[in-house]
Amino acid sequence: MNVTLLATILAISFFSIGVYAYRRKEAMWFWSSPTYQQLTFHDPVTFNHKTGIMWMLFGIAFFLPVPFRYFHFFKENIFIMLLSCILTIGLFVMMIYWHHLYQIHRK
């Protein structure tokens, strides 16, 4: 049950980052670096909307297996492996997508 609670908190956190990025007026950064902060974007609001949707989808994907574990449809070790796969693949896809957005929207 502790892993289920932790996964729920993480999913809510990821989704909250998405909502924050979606509403932000200045460009939202995937990681922090002085070289990225010096660049400007053509349309930071559109960039933030796409970044926010990316984070919200990641939060939803991270939450999807939680109800199945809560109702004991599969064991905890399978649940942890599934979350690990979602986290690994999801972060990799998010990095590629964010880089794609960055290339499109920068000046």
Rank of each mutant, 00 (worst) to 15 (best):
P34I: 10
F47P: 02
I12F: 09
A7L: 06
I9D: 02
V93G: 03
N48Q: 01
M94D: 05
T8I: 12
T35M: 08
S13F: 15
F62W: 08
S16L: 12
M94A: 05
I17V: 15
A11T: 04
T46D: 00
K25I: 01
L39A: 12
I89N: 00
H100R: 15
W29I: 01
E76V: 13
N77W: 09
M56S: 08
N77V: 09
H100S: 15
G90M: 08
T35H: 09
V3L: 14
I96G: 12
M54V: 06
E26H: 05
Y22I: 03
T4K: 12
I53S: 01
F41H: 01
L64T: 14
S16P: 01
M95W: 11
W55R: 01
Y102Q: 13
V45R: 10
D43Y: 11
I9Q: 04
L83R: 13
M94F: 06
P65L: 13
I12E: 02
R23H: 06
Y20N: 07
W98K: 09
F62T: 08
I60P: 03
L87N: 11
F74M: 07
L57E: 04
I96N: 12
I89P: 00
K25S: 04
R24D: 06
I78V: 15
M54S: 07
H99A: 01
P67E: 04
Y70L: 13
K75Y: 12
R69Q: 12
I96S: 13
N77K: 03
Y20C: 06
T35G: 00
S16A: 14
T88E: 00
Q37I: 11
V45K: 11
Y102A: 09
P67H: 07
G90A: 06
G18V: 10
L101V: 02
M1W: 02
A61L: 14
H105D: 12
Y97V: 10
N48T: 01
L83D: 13
M56C: 09
K75S: 13
G52K: 04
H105R: 05
S33N: 14
R106G: 00
H100I: 15
G52D: 04
I86G: 00
W31N: 06
L91N: 11
L5T: 09
A21I: 11
I53T: 09
F47Y: 14
H42W: 06
L5V: 13
F30D: 02
N2K: 14
Y70M: 08
L5E: 03
W29Q: 10
G52Y: 05
N77A: 07
F71N: 04
L6K: 04
Y102G: 10
W55I: 02
L91W: 11
W29N: 08
S13I: 15
P67F: 09
Y102D: 14
F58M: 14
I60W: 07
M28F: 15
P44T: 03
K25C: 00
L39F: 10
T8Y: 10
M94V: 02
M56E: 04
L6I: 14
Y22R: 06
H99P: 00
L57P: 02
H72I: 11
K50Q: 15
F58E: 09
T8L: 14
Q103F: 05
Y70P: 00
N48V: 02
L10V: 05
F15K: 07
K50H: 15
S32T: 05
F47Q: 03
W98N: 13
Y20A: 10
